[in-house]
Design a protein around this nucleic acid. Sequence first.
DNA 1: AAGATAGAGGACAACATCGTTTCTTATTTA
DNA 2: TAAATAAGAAACGATGTTGTCCTCTATCTT
Lengths: 204, 204
Amino acid sequence: MTASSSASTPPTRTVTTRRRGTELSQAIYRATLEELAATSFEELSFEKIAPKAGTGKSVLYRRWSTTAELVLAALKDHEAGLGKPLIPDTGTLRGDLLVLLIAFARVLDEPRGRALRPLLTQRPRHPELFAQVMDQVVLPHQAVLLDCMRTAVERGQASPERATARTAAIGPRLIVAESIDRGTVTDSEVEAVVDLVILPLLAR
Amino acid sequence: MTASSSASTPPTRTVTTRRRGTELSQAIYRATLEELAATSFEELSFEKIAPKAGTGKSVLYRRWSTTAELVLAALKDHEAGLGKPLIPDTGTLRGDLLVLLIAFARVLDEPRGRALRPLLTQRPRHPELFAQVMDQVVLPHQAVLLDCMRTAVERGQASPERATARTAAIGPRLIVAESIDRGTVTDSEVEAVVDLVILPLLAR
DNA sequence: AAGATAGAGGACAACATCGTTTCTTATTTA
DNA sequence: TAAATAAGAAACGATGTTGTCCTCTATCTT
């Protein structure tokens, strides 16, 4: 009757108001990404997500049939997930890169950002989910970064043959690596990456 | 009596010769790293390692009491694991970096190299094992790379304030990221990392 | 106010996995 | 050759996890 919170997992819900529709979906999305960020996709189960969202398994099974479905929906969600990428417009390449990469570093402090890690690092085990996450979640964000670099090329601030998807990936990759090693990435570390690695690389 | 191979996992042993001592340990190490590379540390168990090594669980429990112990022993092993780092001496910074990073890329094609991934990317879940792997396995290799950079500083080929552990990590990090995204890393991709990223960064 | 819908949470059996133990026998040592 | 040692394989009970189903009732709809 009353949604009780387990002792091991953080208290999720104590009030006795019964949520529905979107509100409930959001809670489930959040619980899903939290659980995924803390463990891995293999260990993910409706069994563990339900109590963390403060609901029952039946609610989950009624809406999604597999965990892969649920994860993809959660990641694509605009509120709980990684919905729409932000578009920077600072006027300079350096400014745009800092906005994007610092925002990325901050998202990696949250569960929805960390939820990406187990998916991307365990790629060979779920090729279909990996491909979907890549296409529908990661690529839109990468495209923004590449656009910034191309704009810089038009301004004459960057070398055309260096503004490729490959070089655009370097920033995010180093941010992810740093976040894995140290737990978090400070703004000044992002700045160092931009000034010492990316900008010299792009210089014409 | 006869070591049979399961249908799902690759046939490991068909002959009926009973191995002992070092020979057996090596087989167990190899099976451990294969299993770890294919899954994750959480999913690792004596239960799965034993048949893959073509032996029984009791043999494992007789020698190690936890999977963490076994994994660390396997990684530190000179033959099956990541024993001693090689020391390059090509006379130039570029040459040394290429030797080290290309060797690293090739190790990442093997199970013993890929076994590192789940450990390093799931750091918060096994802090003690992560620390041991870092200290006893990864650091010795990183030290070699940093030494090359310091030698280059003495030769006047690199800037002193850039030859830090942090910049030394950039190469391996980009190699790992590429191997995760693409599956493998070609020699020419390593070359691009060295020439376009690391060397410009180190230039005085 | 009464009926319809769907959330919350528990119970269920089927199934997998765990570390331990036992037994047989190949291989080594004395 | 005989005794000692340890490998290989199977079986054990205990424990945890799976997806489904069932009941109860808060909330929405009419």
